[in-house]
Design a protein around this nucleic acid. Structure first.
Lengths: 219, 219
DNA sequence: CCTTGTAAGATAGTGGCACTGTCCAATGGA
DNA sequence: TCCATTGGACAGTGCCACTATCTTACAAGG
């Protein structure tokens, strides 16, 4: 199919597809003549993946390029590809060193992970993001101690099992690594949305007293 | 204290504080003379909250203004304030109507929420975001059916209980609404980070075979 | 009193990002 | 033959979160 049809079928503006081609998020089509290229179903799928990562998963374009490059890097084995791809995923803000709240948060997080017997590199991106968030909560005198983090960690552990189960439904290194990336990123809004909906439910249950079950606070 | 000291103590550049004042994220200080203003501890706290929402919670500046305005709107009762504040929280992308995948996703989400007996307005922001994410997953042939969403919903329900427990540790409408907003937003990176760390653990457990417990894939 | 430094506020500018609009040569169907 | 269309290059746009500059008004030391 031509670029115009690719655009039509994916709902992505042609100019945007050209941009993604330039940014190497999409492989160039098979050149038919000097001025025309042919795209296949795999281009369509890849385009949808790119769009989903960027729009749903809020992955920056440059990051998506790195991640996708790692996914299809045939020179690495599954482990290395998975590692590289996940490393490249978008990073949150990093904690300010030499900030007392950050140091306290660092210790608190280390304690939590030790208790759970999780072995992580403290320089890993999610680790840094976690420390930054705990530090911010602490500075505001909001609870973020072991007791408060533990339920979140338990939930995360449970979800990780489900995530990996989903990944293992796929076969072949490339499909699995792609699945790992896609499911990690695309289930994030699912999880956050469900949490907000659940909060609205719970808040309704606690504050609404009797009344009907009208969705007041559901944001 | 003067603006410069506020800047010093919070770590936020003075120019940025001026910007926040302009954007009404911060209340102006008490004017001492025509060219000087005095700020108190409550300004410092508010500034930290604003920074945390924006940098840790990735809340857009304009959104933060709306949310904080709702938090301290004394003319509304607790319910209305909570509803307004949570409504204003950042919205993810909305699903494309008249897209078959989105319609299917809509039905799937409705079925899930019916099964859980959650009553939500289908126009609510998190609901729309959820539908968009499920639609994207479906278009990519990634699993996002009832069976796959249910564990996420259960986890969300559990976390919502903990969230509301934390909120109820505070007293007074303003403190509770602020806590609801802050904890909702600031625990999001906590949850996502913990999920990624847990995935790395689980992935190590499944793929690393024997070996030591070195943190390979921990991104 | 005068100087020098700093404060607050207004306004314009910056840099990053994700596109988007315009132009051009080369086609390719009517 | 002719003219709409295609792919590619490249400059421009719009938004956002700051940031730099400038002006006026004090404030404190000498």
């Amino acid at each position: 199919m031509r670029l115009a049809e690719l655009s039509e079928r994916s709902g992505v503006p042609a100019a945007t597809i050209k941009y993604y081609l330039r940014e190497q998020l999409l492989q160039p089509g098979r050149r038919v003549t000097a001025t025309q290229a042919e795209y296949g179903e795999e281009h369509l799928r890849r385009l949808r993946l790119v769009r989903a990562l960027i729009q749903i998963g809020r992955v920056p374009v440059a990051t998506a390029r790195e991640v996708l490059a790692a996914v299809q890097d045939e020179t690495l084995d599954l482990d290395a590809r998975l590692g590289t791809a996940m490393q490249a995923l978008p990073a949150g803000p990093r904690p300010d060193q030499e900030d007392p709240a950050a140091e306290a948060a660092e210790r608190e997080v280390a304690k939590l992970l030790a208790e759970l017997d999780w072995r992580c590199d403290p320089r890993a991106t999610p680790y840094r993001t976690l420390v930054a968030a705990v530090a911010a909560l602490t500075r505001l005198d909001y609870p973020a101690g072991l007791a408060h983090l533990a339920p979140y960690a338990r939930a995360a552990a449970q979800l990780a099992v489900d995530d990996l189960d989903m990944v293992q439904e796929f076969e072949g290194p490339m499909a699995q690594v792609e699945a790992a990336v896609a499911l990690t990123v695309l289930y994030e809004p699912v999880l956050l949305s469900l949490r907000r909906l659940a909060q609205a439910q719970e808040s309704g249950r606690r504050f609404a007293a009797a009344e009907d079950g009208a969705p007041r606070n559901c944001p």
